[in-house]
Amino acid sequence: MASSPVQLDSGHDGQACCWCCSGYGGRMSLLLRRWLRAAVCMTVLASIGGCATMQPAEFFELSAESPAHKAMQTRLFETGNEKELLSASAAVLQDLGFQVDEVVREVGMLRAVKERSAREYGQEIGRFFVMVLTIGYVRNSVDLQQRISAVLITRPVDKAGMRSEVRVMFYRVVWKGDGYVERTTILPGEQRMEMIYDPEIYRQFFFKLSKAVFLEAFTL
């Protein structure tokens, strides 16, 4: 997507040069009118595109998927020992290759991070075919590096202090490498952020956590 406006611009530039060289003064205004028309079209398109994104008011509303996500990310444990749950969670995340970033014991919060390569065969093969089909003119950028983060919260759920809830959320930020379209370079470093909603990842984590605390993990 990033390459197309660049191409559009260069096309217009080329046209502008030709019109200037032809030396007709009257055509300057024609060119100007065309430019204005193009600018107006672009602005209208951009504003329509802007409307399609989610409005901020919806960000603080529970979505239809919220209960399912909560169920996937939460488990109950028959213990009131939050400290034990937090330290066991830290140990499990360490086993999974995470570095513990921050712990706030008073509110039962833990954040851990790990960086890994984000390279995938599918993308590399896709890039190769695009290069072959365009005879080397286009080399699209592929995902290079990713930072996977986990935020975990423990919370007592009954007054007697015999049950606790653990909720974990995984998400990742992916950085893209460089590429090019003809002579226009696509700079590296473009970021993409996403929540991880793969149930298997959460199941694995809670399986390990319940083994670490010697307790059964109950779903909501």
């Binding site: 960000f59 919220s66 909560k70 919060m109 919260i153 919370r155 909720r167 959320m169 929540m195």
Partner: peptide, 11 residues
């Protein structure tokens, strides 16, 4: 914290 997590926020 629980409300923010329910709304899909990362603490």
């Amino acid at each position: 914290i629980a409300a923010l997590q329910d709304l899909g926020f990362i603490i």
